[in-house]
Amino acid sequence: MTSTIELTSQLTNIASPTGNTFTIIDYIETLLKESNYVPKKTNKGALLVSVPGNDDHKHRFITAHVDTLGAMVRAIKPDGRLKIDLIGGFKFNAIEGEYCTVYTQNGKELTGTILMHQTSVHVYKDAGDAPRNQDNMKIRLDEKVTSKEETQKLGIQVGDFISFDPRTVITPTGFIKSRHLDDKVSVAILINFLLQLKKSGDTIPFTTHFLFSNNEEIGYGGNSNIDPRVIEYVAVDMGAMGDDQQTDEYSVSICVKDGSGPYHLSLRNHFVTLCQNNHIPYQLDIYPYYGSDASAAIRSGADIKHGLIGAGIEASHAYERTHIESIEATEKLVAAYLFSKELI
Protein backbone atom coordinates (compact mmCIF):
# COMPACT_ATOMS: atom_id res chain seq x y z
CA MET A 1 0.00 0.00 0.00
CA THR A 2 2.82 2.42 0.76
CA SER A 3 3.96 2.49 -2.87
CA THR A 4 0.46 3.26 -4.13
CA ILE A 5 0.04 6.12 -1.65
CA GLU A 6 3.47 7.51 -2.49
CA LEU A 7 2.77 7.19 -6.21
CA THR A 8 -0.55 8.99 -5.77
CA SER A 9 1.30 11.84 -4.06
CA GLN A 10 3.83 12.00 -6.89
CA LEU A 11 1.08 12.05 -9.52
CA THR A 12 -1.00 14.76 -7.83
CA ASN A 13 2.06 16.99 -7.84
CA ILE A 14 2.40 16.74 -11.63
CA ALA A 15 0.09 19.34 -13.15
CA SER A 16 -2.21 17.83 -15.79
CA PRO A 17 -5.32 19.89 -16.52
CA THR A 18 -7.31 18.49 -19.42
CA GLY A 19 -5.64 19.63 -22.63
CA ASN A 20 -2.15 19.83 -21.11
CA THR A 21 -1.31 16.32 -19.93
CA PHE A 22 1.96 15.78 -21.79
CA THR A 23 4.22 15.86 -18.73
CA ILE A 24 2.31 13.26 -16.73
CA ILE A 25 1.91 10.96 -19.74
CA ASP A 26 5.67 11.14 -20.32
CA TYR A 27 6.24 10.38 -16.62
CA ILE A 28 4.04 7.27 -16.72
CA GLU A 29 5.53 6.15 -20.02
CA THR A 30 9.06 6.31 -18.56
CA LEU A 31 7.97 4.48 -15.41
CA LEU A 32 6.42 1.62 -17.38
CA LYS A 33 9.31 1.37 -19.84
CA GLU A 34 11.65 0.91 -16.88
CA SER A 35 9.68 -2.26 -16.11
CA ASN A 36 9.98 -3.43 -19.74
CA TYR A 37 6.46 -2.58 -20.84
CA VAL A 38 5.92 -1.16 -24.30
CA PRO A 39 3.40 1.68 -23.88
CA LYS A 40 2.10 3.53 -26.92
CA LYS A 41 0.86 7.10 -27.11
CA THR A 42 -2.42 7.54 -28.93
CA ASN A 43 -3.08 10.39 -31.33
CA LYS A 44 -5.22 12.04 -28.64
CA GLY A 45 -2.25 11.91 -26.26
CA ALA A 46 -3.34 9.07 -23.98
CA LEU A 47 -1.11 6.12 -23.08
CA LEU A 48 -2.06 2.54 -23.96
CA VAL A 49 -0.36 -0.57 -22.57
CA SER A 50 -1.43 -3.97 -23.88
CA VAL A 51 -0.57 -6.94 -21.68
CA PRO A 52 -0.79 -10.43 -23.24
CA GLY A 53 -2.93 -12.97 -21.41
CA ASN A 54 -3.46 -16.72 -21.62
CA ASP A 55 -6.46 -16.08 -23.88
CA ASP A 56 -5.75 -13.70 -26.75
CA HIS A 57 -9.08 -14.19 -28.51
CA LYS A 58 -11.18 -12.32 -25.96
CA HIS A 59 -9.83 -9.17 -24.36
CA ARG A 60 -10.41 -6.87 -21.41
CA PHE A 61 -9.95 -3.10 -21.29
CA ILE A 62 -9.37 -1.03 -18.14
CA THR A 63 -8.90 2.70 -17.76
CA ALA A 64 -8.02 5.48 -15.35
CA HIS A 65 -7.67 9.12 -16.35
CA VAL A 66 -4.68 11.37 -15.78
CA ASP A 67 -6.41 14.63 -16.69
CA THR A 68 -7.74 16.88 -13.97
CA LEU A 69 -9.84 19.96 -13.51
CA GLY A 70 -8.10 23.19 -14.42
CA ALA A 71 -8.60 26.46 -16.24
CA MET A 72 -7.42 28.72 -19.05
CA VAL A 73 -6.73 32.42 -19.25
CA ARG A 74 -9.93 33.99 -20.57
CA ALA A 75 -8.74 37.59 -20.62
CA ILE A 76 -6.28 40.01 -19.06
CA LYS A 77 -8.14 42.62 -17.05
CA PRO A 78 -7.22 46.34 -17.03
CA ASP A 79 -5.61 45.98 -13.57
CA GLY A 80 -3.30 43.21 -14.83
CA ARG A 81 -5.18 40.38 -13.17
CA LEU A 82 -6.53 37.40 -15.08
CA LYS A 83 -10.05 36.37 -15.92
CA ILE A 84 -10.32 32.58 -16.11
CA ASP A 85 -12.35 29.98 -17.98
CA LEU A 86 -12.96 26.65 -16.25
CA ILE A 87 -11.95 23.26 -17.63
CA GLY A 88 -14.13 20.44 -16.32
CA GLY A 89 -17.27 20.25 -14.23
CA PHE A 90 -16.85 22.28 -11.06
CA LYS A 91 -17.92 25.57 -9.52
CA PHE A 92 -15.89 28.71 -8.94
CA ASN A 93 -16.38 28.50 -5.17
CA ALA A 94 -14.38 25.23 -5.17
CA ILE A 95 -11.21 27.11 -6.12
CA GLU A 96 -11.64 30.36 -4.21
CA GLY A 97 -8.42 31.20 -2.38
CA GLU A 98 -6.44 28.46 -4.12
CA TYR A 99 -2.85 28.90 -5.25
CA CYS A 100 -2.32 28.27 -8.95
CA THR A 101 0.26 28.24 -11.74
CA VAL A 102 -0.09 29.81 -15.19
CA TYR A 103 1.83 28.10 -18.02
CA THR A 104 2.72 30.53 -20.80
CA GLN A 105 3.34 29.74 -24.45
CA ASN A 106 7.00 30.72 -24.05
CA GLY A 107 7.57 28.18 -21.27
CA LYS A 108 7.28 30.37 -18.17
CA GLU A 109 5.47 29.15 -15.07
CA LEU A 110 3.96 32.04 -13.12
CA THR A 111 2.30 31.57 -9.75
CA GLY A 112 -0.73 33.32 -8.37
CA THR A 113 -3.86 33.08 -6.21
CA ILE A 114 -7.49 32.72 -7.31
CA LEU A 115 -9.52 35.38 -5.48
CA MET A 116 -12.81 37.23 -5.54
CA HIS A 117 -12.53 40.80 -6.75
CA GLN A 118 -14.47 41.70 -3.57
CA THR A 119 -12.23 39.74 -1.20
CA SER A 120 -11.36 42.43 1.33
CA VAL A 121 -14.06 42.70 3.99
CA HIS A 122 -12.59 46.07 4.95
CA VAL A 123 -13.47 47.46 1.54
CA TYR A 124 -16.38 45.51 0.07
CA LYS A 125 -19.71 45.26 1.84
CA ASP A 126 -20.72 42.28 -0.34
CA ALA A 127 -17.49 40.28 0.21
CA GLY A 128 -19.48 37.34 1.55
CA ASP A 129 -22.54 37.63 -0.67
CA ALA A 130 -21.22 38.48 -4.12
CA PRO A 131 -21.65 35.65 -6.66
CA ARG A 132 -18.67 33.40 -7.16
CA ASN A 133 -18.56 33.53 -10.95
CA GLN A 134 -16.35 34.35 -13.91
CA ASP A 135 -16.95 38.07 -13.64
CA ASN A 136 -16.04 38.35 -9.96
CA MET A 137 -13.18 35.85 -9.64
CA LYS A 138 -9.70 36.40 -11.00
CA ILE A 139 -6.06 35.48 -10.58
CA ARG A 140 -3.77 37.77 -8.59
CA LEU A 141 -0.33 37.09 -10.05
CA ASP A 142 2.76 36.99 -7.88
CA GLU A 143 4.31 39.58 -10.16
CA LYS A 144 4.69 43.35 -9.95
CA VAL A 145 1.94 44.18 -12.44
CA THR A 146 -0.86 46.74 -12.29
CA SER A 147 -1.98 46.95 -15.92
CA LYS A 148 -2.92 44.75 -18.86
CA GLU A 149 0.22 45.83 -20.72
CA GLU A 150 2.54 44.84 -17.86
CA THR A 151 0.93 41.38 -17.64
CA GLN A 152 1.20 40.91 -21.40
CA LYS A 153 4.93 41.64 -21.16
CA LEU A 154 5.24 38.54 -18.93
CA GLY A 155 4.20 36.49 -21.94
CA ILE A 156 0.70 35.68 -20.71
CA GLN A 157 -2.03 35.43 -23.32
CA VAL A 158 -5.52 34.02 -23.80
CA GLY A 159 -5.48 30.22 -23.80
CA ASP A 160 -2.61 29.73 -21.36
CA PHE A 161 -3.31 26.76 -19.11
CA ILE A 162 -3.80 27.11 -15.36
CA SER A 163 -3.32 24.36 -12.77
CA PHE A 164 -4.36 24.37 -9.11
CA ASP A 165 -2.01 23.65 -6.21
CA PRO A 166 -2.85 20.06 -5.11
CA ARG A 167 -1.76 20.59 -1.47
CA THR A 168 -1.30 16.83 -1.02
CA VAL A 169 -1.11 15.65 2.59
CA ILE A 170 -0.88 12.09 3.94
CA THR A 171 -2.04 12.03 7.55
CA PRO A 172 -0.86 9.69 10.35
CA THR A 173 -4.45 8.42 10.55
CA GLY A 174 -4.35 6.98 7.02
CA PHE A 175 -6.08 9.72 5.06
CA ILE A 176 -4.74 11.27 1.89
CA LYS A 177 -6.20 14.68 1.10
CA SER A 178 -5.44 16.55 -2.07
CA ARG A 179 -6.87 18.06 -5.17
CA HIS A 180 -7.08 15.71 -8.13
CA LEU A 181 -7.44 12.42 -6.26
CA ASP A 182 -10.01 12.11 -9.05
CA ASP A 183 -8.51 10.25 -10.76
CA LYS A 184 -4.88 9.98 -9.76
CA VAL A 185 -5.65 7.45 -7.04
CA SER A 186 -6.92 5.12 -9.76
CA VAL A 187 -3.96 5.87 -12.02
CA ALA A 188 -1.61 4.92 -9.18
CA ILE A 189 -3.56 1.69 -8.59
CA LEU A 190 -3.27 0.61 -12.23
CA ILE A 191 0.41 1.54 -12.45
CA ASN A 192 1.17 -0.37 -9.27
CA PHE A 193 -0.74 -3.40 -10.56
CA LEU A 194 1.37 -3.39 -13.72
CA LEU A 195 4.63 -3.01 -11.79
CA GLN A 196 3.75 -5.82 -9.40
CA LEU A 197 2.60 -8.03 -12.27
CA LYS A 198 5.96 -7.65 -13.98
CA LYS A 199 7.85 -8.39 -10.74
CA SER A 200 5.82 -11.52 -10.03
CA GLY A 201 6.11 -12.96 -13.52
CA ASP A 202 2.43 -13.97 -13.39
CA THR A 203 0.23 -14.04 -16.46
CA ILE A 204 -3.31 -12.70 -16.48
CA PRO A 205 -6.08 -14.88 -17.94
CA PHE A 206 -7.07 -12.53 -20.77
CA THR A 207 -5.11 -10.04 -22.85
CA THR A 208 -5.87 -6.71 -21.23
CA HIS A 209 -5.43 -3.16 -22.48
CA PHE A 210 -4.59 -0.52 -19.86
CA LEU A 211 -5.52 2.98 -21.01
CA PHE A 212 -4.34 6.07 -19.15
CA SER A 213 -6.80 8.47 -20.71
CA ASN A 214 -6.38 12.22 -20.90
CA ASN A 215 -9.75 13.76 -21.77
CA GLU A 216 -12.16 12.21 -19.27
CA GLU A 217 -13.05 15.43 -17.47
CA ILE A 218 -14.51 16.83 -20.69
CA GLY A 219 -16.33 13.64 -21.64
CA TYR A 220 -14.45 11.68 -24.30
CA GLY A 221 -11.28 10.33 -22.74
CA GLY A 222 -11.67 6.58 -23.22
CA ASN A 223 -13.95 6.33 -26.23
CA SER A 224 -11.35 5.16 -28.77
CA ASN A 225 -8.45 2.72 -29.30
CA ILE A 226 -10.69 -0.17 -28.23
CA ASP A 227 -9.59 -3.45 -29.80
CA PRO A 228 -12.57 -5.21 -31.48
CA ARG A 229 -11.80 -8.29 -29.39
CA VAL A 230 -12.59 -6.41 -26.16
CA ILE A 231 -15.57 -7.92 -24.32
CA GLU A 232 -15.38 -6.12 -20.98
CA TYR A 233 -14.47 -2.50 -20.35
CA VAL A 234 -13.88 -1.28 -16.77
CA ALA A 235 -13.30 2.31 -15.72
CA VAL A 236 -11.50 2.80 -12.41
CA ASP A 237 -12.57 6.20 -11.18
CA MET A 238 -13.65 7.94 -7.99
CA GLY A 239 -16.70 6.90 -5.98
CA ALA A 240 -18.93 9.89 -5.21
CA MET A 241 -19.90 10.63 -1.61
CA GLY A 242 -22.71 12.75 -0.18
CA ASP A 243 -26.39 12.70 0.82
CA ASP A 244 -28.16 9.45 -0.11
CA GLN A 245 -24.83 7.93 -1.17
CA GLN A 246 -23.59 4.58 0.16
CA THR A 247 -19.98 5.17 -0.86
CA ASP A 248 -17.49 5.81 1.96
CA GLU A 249 -13.76 6.29 2.38
CA TYR A 250 -13.12 2.76 3.68
CA SER A 251 -14.38 0.45 0.91
CA VAL A 252 -14.47 0.11 -2.87
CA SER A 253 -17.46 1.70 -4.58
CA ILE A 254 -19.22 -0.25 -7.34
CA CYS A 255 -21.32 2.05 -9.50
CA VAL A 256 -24.67 0.62 -10.59
CA LYS A 257 -25.82 3.76 -12.42
CA ASP A 258 -24.67 7.28 -13.15
CA GLY A 259 -25.84 10.16 -15.29
CA SER A 260 -25.36 8.04 -18.40
CA GLY A 261 -27.62 5.23 -17.17
CA PRO A 262 -27.13 1.76 -15.64
CA TYR A 263 -23.85 -0.12 -15.91
CA HIS A 264 -23.85 -3.72 -17.12
CA LEU A 265 -25.70 -5.83 -14.59
CA SER A 266 -23.74 -9.06 -15.05
CA LEU A 267 -20.39 -7.28 -14.75
CA ARG A 268 -21.59 -5.41 -11.66
CA ASN A 269 -22.70 -8.69 -10.10
CA HIS A 270 -19.30 -10.18 -10.93
CA PHE A 271 -17.63 -7.38 -8.96
CA VAL A 272 -19.91 -8.08 -6.00
CA THR A 273 -19.13 -11.81 -6.08
CA LEU A 274 -15.39 -11.10 -6.22
CA CYS A 275 -15.69 -8.78 -3.21
CA GLN A 276 -17.68 -11.32 -1.23
CA ASN A 277 -15.37 -14.23 -2.08
CA ASN A 278 -12.23 -12.22 -1.27
CA HIS A 279 -13.57 -10.40 1.81
CA ILE A 280 -13.22 -6.99 0.16
CA PRO A 281 -15.37 -4.25 1.73
CA TYR A 282 -17.61 -2.70 -0.92
CA GLN A 283 -20.62 -0.45 -1.46
CA LEU A 284 -23.08 -0.33 -4.37
CA ASP A 285 -24.00 3.18 -5.39
CA ILE A 286 -25.60 5.57 -7.88
CA TYR A 287 -23.74 8.72 -8.93
CA PRO A 288 -26.44 11.11 -10.21
CA TYR A 289 -24.22 13.75 -11.86
CA TYR A 290 -21.37 11.69 -13.26
CA GLY A 291 -19.96 10.08 -16.40
CA SER A 292 -16.90 7.87 -16.93
CA ASP A 293 -14.56 6.67 -19.63
CA ALA A 294 -16.69 3.52 -19.78
CA SER A 295 -19.88 5.48 -20.44
CA ALA A 296 -18.01 7.54 -23.05
CA ALA A 297 -17.06 4.29 -24.78
CA ILE A 298 -20.69 3.17 -24.79
CA ARG A 299 -21.80 6.51 -26.24
CA SER A 300 -19.20 6.17 -29.01
CA GLY A 301 -20.81 2.89 -30.08
CA ALA A 302 -18.45 0.34 -28.55
CA ASP A 303 -20.07 -3.11 -28.25
CA ILE A 304 -18.83 -3.87 -24.74
CA LYS A 305 -19.96 -4.78 -21.25
CA HIS A 306 -19.04 -1.77 -19.15
CA GLY A 307 -18.38 -1.32 -15.45
CA LEU A 308 -17.20 1.35 -13.03
CA ILE A 309 -15.42 0.88 -9.71
CA GLY A 310 -13.24 3.11 -7.56
CA ALA A 311 -12.13 4.40 -4.20
CA GLY A 312 -14.55 6.58 -2.26
CA ILE A 313 -13.62 10.26 -2.59
CA GLU A 314 -15.00 12.90 -0.23
CA ALA A 315 -15.70 16.43 -1.57
CA SER A 316 -15.26 15.55 -5.23
CA HIS A 317 -14.00 18.30 -7.56
CA ALA A 318 -12.86 20.38 -4.59
CA TYR A 319 -10.19 19.64 -1.95
CA GLU A 320 -10.73 15.88 -1.93
CA ARG A 321 -9.97 13.13 0.59
CA THR A 322 -9.89 9.36 0.82
CA HIS A 323 -8.43 6.74 3.14
CA ILE A 324 -5.85 4.00 2.72
CA GLU A 325 -8.55 1.40 3.41
CA SER A 326 -10.59 2.51 0.39
CA ILE A 327 -7.53 2.48 -1.85
CA GLU A 328 -6.57 -0.96 -0.58
CA ALA A 329 -10.08 -2.33 -1.20
CA THR A 330 -10.02 -0.93 -4.75
CA GLU A 331 -6.60 -2.43 -5.40
CA LYS A 332 -7.82 -5.82 -4.24
CA LEU A 333 -10.90 -5.71 -6.46
CA VAL A 334 -8.87 -4.61 -9.49
CA ALA A 335 -6.47 -7.52 -8.95
CA ALA A 336 -9.25 -10.03 -8.27
CA TYR A 337 -11.04 -8.93 -11.43
CA LEU A 338 -8.00 -8.97 -13.71
CA PHE A 339 -7.01 -12.42 -12.46
CA SER A 340 -10.58 -13.81 -12.65
CA LYS A 341 -10.74 -16.60 -15.23
CA GLU A 342 -14.17 -16.04 -16.71
CA LEU A 343 -15.67 -13.33 -18.85
CA ILE A 344 -19.23 -12.39 -18.05
Rank of each mutant, 00 (worst) to 15 (best):
H65E: 01
T146R: 08
T68L: 06
Q245F: 13
T171L: 03
P78K: 13
G159L: 01
L154Q: 14
K199E: 13
F210C: 04
I87R: 05
T151D: 07
N223Q: 15
L343F: 00
T63D: 11
A75G: 11
I139H: 01
I28D: 00
D67H: 09
V158L: 13
E331M: 06
I189Q: 13
G201D: 01
L267A: 08
L267V: 11
T151F: 07
N133E: 11
K138S: 09
P205D: 00
S340I: 02
G242R: 03
K332M: 06
A94M: 05
G97F: 02
H59E: 11
V66M: 10
K144S: 10
T8R: 02
A311H: 00
D183N: 15
L7G: 00
E29N: 08
K33C: 07
I344N: 14
D183W: 02
E29Q: 03
K144N: 09
T247C: 13
L181T: 07
H180I: 05
A188H: 03
E149V: 09
L265G: 09
T322H: 00
A318P: 00
D79E: 11
T173G: 08
T101C: 03
D55C: 00
Y233G: 04
L31Q: 10
T119H: 14
Q276E: 15
Q283P: 12
M116Q: 04
G261D: 14
H209D: 04
S16N: 08
I156K: 15
L190V: 13
L274M: 04
D285C: 05
H122D: 11
N133Y: 09
A130R: 01
E232Q: 09
E109C: 10
K199G: 09
A75P: 05
K332W: 01
T111A: 15
L69S: 04
L190I: 00
H264A: 05
I280V: 02
T207C: 02
V169F: 11
T18H: 01
I309Q: 09
K108Q: 13
A335K: 03
P228F: 04
T68F: 04
I14W: 02
G159D: 06
S3E: 15
G242F: 11
E34W: 10
T101K: 06
S251T: 14
F193M: 08
G261F: 14
V272L: 07
S163Q: 05
E320S: 06
G312N: 06
L115R: 01
S16P: 06
N36T: 10
I14Q: 08
I156V: 04
S292D: 14
V256R: 15
F212A: 09
L7V: 04
E96F: 02
A294V: 08
A318V: 02
F210P: 03
N13I: 12
Q152C: 06
I28F: 03
I95Y: 00
H270C: 12
E217F: 05
I231H: 14
L274V: 10
L11I: 01
S292F: 01
I84R: 03
K177S: 04
M1N: 10
T171W: 05
V123R: 13
Y250E: 11
S200R: 06
L115K: 12
G259Y: 10
V121Q: 10
H264E: 14
L308F: 14
I313N: 00
V49I: 11
A311P: 11
V272T: 07
G88M: 03
A127Q: 10
L267F: 09
M72I: 12
G174D: 01
S9N: 06
